[in-house]
Design a protein around this nucleic acid. Structure first.
Length: 156
DNA sequence: GCCAACGTTGGC
DNA sequence: GCCAACGTTGGC
């Protein structure tokens, strides 16, 4: 059963255009250091799941396009690298603490479905991203929410 | 830049 | 196990 996710990224650090330029449009979703987000990747994602790509912490936060889960879960190697900004000395290859999946670029919408616009759409009102104080960088999305956002994004 | 909300850490 | 202190996220 295909599932759907919203994944945040700061475009300053890694935008949807950056993803589209990666080899095969595919890149490990590294640097996640939150247990809930890790558990979604480790326990609940499957290859082919739909991903809404969300730009956060930027002038126009919102959903900018689509990606998909492109691998089974495996250890986040940046945690083992002392030179990485994501280094975690408590993680090691024998007992990796941080797990990720690869994400593949699917499409960039002709326009951004902004957070402000999302707040005006009744069918989206239960989305985690719209709840006060939510900071989780990976959240599950219902099919009806995903479908509506795709429609809004393509209708540019 | 501000600040509310949240997660993690560590002393006890 | 409690909880204060601290660091981070992210909209505005």
């Amino acid at each position: 059963m295909k599932k759907y996710w919203l994944m945040k990224s700061e475009p300053n650090a890694f935008s949807i255009d950056d993803l589209s330029r990666c080899k095969d449009g595919t890149e490990p979703w590294d640097g996640i250091r939150n247990y809930q987000a890790r558990n979604f990747m480790r326990d609940e994602m499957s290859v082919g799941d739909g991903v809404l790509f969300y730009h956060s912490n930027c002038p126009e936060p919102g959903v900018v396009g689509l990606a998909e889960v492109a691998s089974d879960p495996y250890p986040d190697k940046t945690a083992f690298d002392p030179k990485s900004k994501y280094h975690d000395p408590k993680s090691n290859p024998e007992q990796p603490r941080w797990i990720l999946v690869d994400v593949r670029f699917v499409e960039k919408f002709p326009r951004t479905v902004t957070l402000a616009e999302m707040r005006t759409v009744k069918i989206l009102e239960e989305m985690k991203i719209l709840q006060k104080g939510n900071r989780l960088s990976i959240t599950p999305v219902r099919k009806k929410e995903y479908d509506r956002l795709v429609k809004l994004g393509r209708n540019g």
